[in-house]
Nucleic acid binder design. Structure first.
Lengths: 172, 172
DNA sequence: GCAACTGATTGCAAAATGCAATCGGATAGG
DNA sequence: CCTATCCGATTGCATTTTGCAATCAGTTGC
């Protein structure tokens, strides 16, 4: 279940980590959607991942060092998945991927607004977002001044604004 | 052979384009290795792609608009594959992917020196590289001042320097 | 006690992958 | 010419991966 190491090329090795159709989707939902539980990932996924694939990928991502698993104190069967630093530093890749897809592929407006915001914010915004993720997932001290909205809140607000505007356009 | 469109999310759509183990490898060899012919891609690949997979992916990448094919005037059977603007704008993604892999994965020094150079050069270097690719593949006018080494030459020189140094370390 | 929910696992069919052999046409050397 | 080599693929076939549906045993709330 570890990587093949077809070559020592960094692009190849990166591809061996998430060169499949689901690994990055799961990480996307954890990073941007804030999902931490198996069911959240299973039911919340727009793309409809199957439970066995999800289980397999979570296991694989743990073995590769991108995720850790811990018991949820509120429920003896619940597991909480956390991003590691290795996964948190994927934010710039996600941002570039989103920016590229937004230009060249048939994205929907409400789903691409977040990519747009992340692109406009550039590396400083990515850094802030990564700090928030470190706080959330690794227990690191938060560097952002209290009172300022989190990046995820900003992304969510932008998304909901588009959805509301589109709904209004329909009913108007 | 087109993409599924499981959702309109830009990250998902990008993943449907090159969320497999070979598409990005082929594009990497074309972008960084300057390969344009079937055989070059087949034999030059470090990872050892099979000919049927290569043929399949080239066809797919053409259908998706990332590559074009033209006859080679020097040989009636040879085909020259060219990158489109869509593929050329993958350079920042490749750079980020390489930078991430270099940090977190067991890369070899000689193969990661290019990623390091590309990371250090940042967006300005990426832009210069994309301009060179546009010149090479799309016939666009070259913007770089004559006499300055091309980015690919710089990458190649850095690679060969590492190889030479390592060879010396062995024989010394 | 029982229905709903937790993170998974199993069986199975379909699709993708990887390998080896091969194709018909084009070219280069003698 | 003739033959060896190279050209971009294609085919057949065994293996692996994928995706779906059903199911699991333990936990919780009522």
């Amino acid at each position: 279940m570890s990587i093949d190491r077809r070559s020592g090329c960094p692009i190849n090795l990166s591809l061996e980590v998430f060169g499949d159709r689901w690994s990055l989707i799961i990480l996307r939902d954890m990073i941007f959607g804030g999902r931490r539980h198996f069911r959240e990932l299973l039911n919340g996924s727009l793309e409809g991942i199957a439970s066995n694939i999800l289980a397999d990928r979570l296991k694989r991502l743990m073995e590769l060092g991108l995720l850790t698993k811990a018991d949820d104190p509120s429920h003896k069967q619940k597991a909480i998945y956390s991003l590691t630093e290795m996964a948190i530093t994927l934010v710039p890749i996600m941002a570039q991927l989103g920016a590229w897809g937004r230009v060249w592929l048939p994205v929907t407006e409400e789903l691409s607004i977040r990519a747009e915001l992340l692109e406009k914010g550039g590396p400083p915004l990515w850094e802030q977002f990564m700090d928030e993720l470190r706080h959330e997932h690794l227990g690191a001290p938060s560097k952002t001044a209290p009172g300022t909205p989190t990046v995820r809140q900003q992304l969510r607000a932008a998304y909901e604004e588009v959805v509301a505007r589109k709904a209004e356009a329909v009913t108007a």
